[in-house]
């Protein structure tokens, strides 16, 4: 499989704190990659580097061979990277449809086609009935969906999901999982950040485990759960032997 995204020796420090140290991995086109690790492992920092929000101190990130690190979030969005936010950032003065239209305008200059595309995206995400509601009026799981819909409206090649399933009830999480599978079926490659392993591992084809800013291991879900280093990072030394 061809690599859609290549993260190459990326390091980033904030003040004296090293958030990412020499992180390297590849994402194949069409796969769902999990980015997991305990709190403070550097997941969000790395995620922001891929989205263009943060410029790495060293190393580079390439999307289909072209360097995107350091070009900023607007260029990354144009090149085909969509993202959601861990803490929902909806446009609260707008309706649900208008929120998604902002994303759709990234691919359509004119209002009529942007509105049509936004409506289709809302339909796909199961929010069509909410189109004319004010965005702040949605329930928390609906707001997560809106984040996905808005990002999808920019027609991304790579979708970055930041803890999209965290904090949902099992039923809500289940429908969220279904949405992610539907998005993948559309041919969109996905990177998911989660720190709850039970949620991510059944979904992903591979996962990158970060700990203290470094890549601990990369592998299939089965490999990850058996890896003693991962168990140690999550549960501490006492459980590693068990």
């Amino acid at each position: 499989m061809a690599a859609l995204l290549r993260v190459d020796c990326v390091s980033k420090s904030f003040g004296g704190v090293a958030a990412n140290v020499d992180v390297s991995f590849e994402v194949a086109a069409g796969e769902i990659l999990g980015l997991i690790g305990p709190n403070g492992a550097g997941k969000t920092s790395l995620f922001n580097a891929i989205a263009g929000e943060v410029t790495p101190d060293r190393g580079e990130i390439r999307l289909v061979g072209e360097r995107i690190s350091g070009l900023g979030p607007v260029t990354c969005a144009e090149r085909g990277i969509g993202r959601t936010f861990q803490v929902v950032r909806s446009f609260d003065s707008m309706t649900v449809l208008e929120n998604v239209m902002v994303g759709a305008y990234a691919r359509h200059r004119r209002t009529a086609p942007a509105m049509k595309a936004a409506m289709e995206t809302l339909d796909f995400c199961g929010l069509a009935s909410r189109a004319d509601r004010p965005a702040y009026n949605l329930s928390p799981p609906e707001k997560r969906r809106l984040e996905v819909a808005r990002a999808l409206a920019t027609k991304p090649r790579l979708l970055l999901l930041d803890e999209m399933l965290t904090g949902l009830t099992p039923t809500e999480a289940q429908s969220g999982v279904q949405l992610i599978r539907d998005v993948q079926a559309q041919g969109v490659t996905i990177i998911m950040v989660e720190h709850v392993m039970e949620i991510v591992l059944p979904l992903v084809s591979r996962a990158v485990v970060l700990n203290l800013g470094r890549v601990l291991t990369i592998g299939s879900p089965e490999e990850i759960v058996r890896n003693p280093d991962v168990i140690r990072a999550y549960l501490g030394d006492r459980y590693a032997a068990a």
Binding site: E53, A77, G82, F85, S90, D92, T154
Partner: peptide
């Protein structure tokens, strides 16, 4: 309006 409501989200959508 996106800029007014949330600059970070606006940028992530190519604004």
């Amino acid at each position: 309006r996106a800029v007014k409501d949330d600059v970070v989200a606006a940028r992530s959508l190519g604004v």
